[in-house]
Structure formats: C-alpha cells, structure tokens
C-alpha cells in the first residue's frame, strides 16, 4: 500500500523555483534514499512534506496513506504519523527532554484513540527505548537539544521517532556530523524500526550512511527534480563517479 505519494510537486521560495515537478511513491515496508548535492532541494522537500509555514506547494499534491495533505497543518500531519528528523534539531531552553517527549507521545496517542501514558508508565517506556539508543537518563533531564553534541542531537531525534512510531519517517541528513561509532548507533536505531507497516525516507548527501541503513530504492535529486532512480547500487555509482557524472548523463 502506498504510504506516501508525491505527485508533480512544484514549490517556489523567494520567487525561485526550488522543486520543479517532483514525484515519488513510497509503499509500506520500504526504505527509500534520496541523494543529492548541497542545494539540490533536499531540506526543502522535507519541510514541504512536514507542512512548514512558507513551504506550500505551488502545484501538485501529496498524500499520506491516501489522504491529501493540502489542507493539513504541520501539527495535524505529525499527529497523523508523519515524522521529520531534522538536519539541524532546534534548541528548546528550559524544556526538559522527558516532558517534551511525553507531551508529544501522549498527543499522538490521544489522536490515535489510545490511552495517554501516566508519568511512571511513560518514564519506564522512554528509558527502555533510550537505553537501546545509548541515550542516558541524564540527557533526558536536560533541556531539549541545549548543549547537546552533534551526535546527541541526532540520537535524540531517532529516539523521538522510536517513541512516536510514525507511519512515514523522513530523515534529513541524519548522518551529518556523526563519527563512525555514532553513525552505527543511529543506524541501528533506525533499522530496529523498519517493519511492514511503515516507511522511511533517508535523505543524505553521502553514500556512507547507506552502508548501515540499506535502502530498497535510491533516487538522485538534482536541481529540484529526481533525475534517476534505482536500487542500492545507484548509491555506489554516486560514490564512485560523484554527482557530476550522473547529472551530466541525465
């Protein structure tokens, strides 16, 4: 079943065409990688999907589990099961990680008609998931992303993903700023969440991440469009010849 369907998406920022008729279909159980050079529109695509203010489509449409997103605000989309792991996670001074997670999880549970978790049940669950991500209790007591290292920020993003159990996750350059050990932890965290019911879109500049999160499909994004799609071998081609070779060939 198609979980995410992007149809001919066009988007302008500051009167400049950024997405130029992009289409993509993602089915449940699949992992897609979107690769592209800097400035090709990867983050713009993720913000558009998440419904950020100012990232409305000029034309085209997006469907989440068959439901059109055009009239849905960012928070509704999130509650409906769309998750974005940010390239640059945002600091929330004074907002404790645990309280933030709990508010988010209970809001989603409420939306799904599930019972909200009480404080104790939540803390237990959060600790269980956190330990798998090598996120220490101490980090959850700190304010969200404040003073976190690059690796900590990315681990906290994936921890949120694990707690929220989204239908579709978009990971925007989750590998940037990670050393090999951190990359492995984060990838393990993502892989543990792969199942037949959900889908993951991994956005990256480098092939390296795809050694750890092995995708079913790879798409090359260039200048606001997908210029080539294929299997994991396409990522290796990028690694070998660089984007320039592929773009010129297209």
């Amino acid at each position: 079943m198609s979980l995410l369907e992007i149809k001919n998406a066009k988007l302008k920022l500051d009167d400049k065409d950024i997405l130029k008729g992009l289409s993509l279909s993602v089915n449940s159980g699949e992992v897609h990688a979107i690769m592209g050079p800097n400035g090709s529109g990867k983050s713009t695509l993720s913000y558009m999907l998440a419904g950020r203010d100012g990232y409305d489509l000029e034309s085209g449409e997006v469907f989440l589990e068959g439901q059109s997103l055009s009239d849905m605000e960012a928070d509704e989309r999130a509650r409906s099961g769309l998750f974005l792991a940010f390239q640059y996670p945002v600091e929330l001074p004074g907002v404790g990680g645990m309280s933030f997670l709990r508010e988010a999880v209970n809001t989603r549970r409420k939306f799904l008609g599930e019972e909200e978790l009480d404080h104790l049940a939540f803390v237990k669950e959060a600790r269980k998931v956190a330990s798998k991500m090598f996120v220490k209790d101490e980090m959850l007591k700190r304010a969200v992303n404040v003073g976190f290292s690059g690796g900590e920020k990315k681990r906290f993003e994936i921890l949120q993903m694990a707690m929220l159990k989204p239908k579709v996750s978009i990971l925007d350059e989750t590998d940037s700023g990670l050393d090999v050990d951190a990359l492995k932890i984060v990838s393990d965290g993502v892989n543990a969440q792969r199942n037949d019911e959900n889908a993951i879109v991994v956005i990256t500049h480098y092939q390296r991440l795809l050694d750890y999160i092995v995708p079913d499909f790879v798409h090359i994004l260039s200048d606001g469009n997908i210029i080539k799609s294929g299997g994991p071998e396409l990522a290796l081609e990028v690694e070998k010849n660089g984007y320039a070779g592929l773009i010129n060939a297209a």
Binding site: F86, T107, L164
Partner: peptide, 26 residues
C-alpha cells in the same frame, strides 16, 4: 522563534501546547 514552533508542531503539538511548553521552559 519560528524554528522552535515548527519543531514542536512537527512533533504533533499544537501552537498552544508548543507556546506553553516553551514559555514554561523559560
């Protein structure tokens, strides 16, 4: 900031919940 609000909204919180969280953090 708009960044902070969007981050909270993306986690499913509505604008009021988000404001309240950020203000209480402050």
């Amino acid at each position: 900031s708009e960044d902070q609000l969007f981050y909270c909204l993306q986690r499913g919180l509505d604008t009021e919940q988000a404001t309240s969280l950020i203000v209480n953090g402050f």
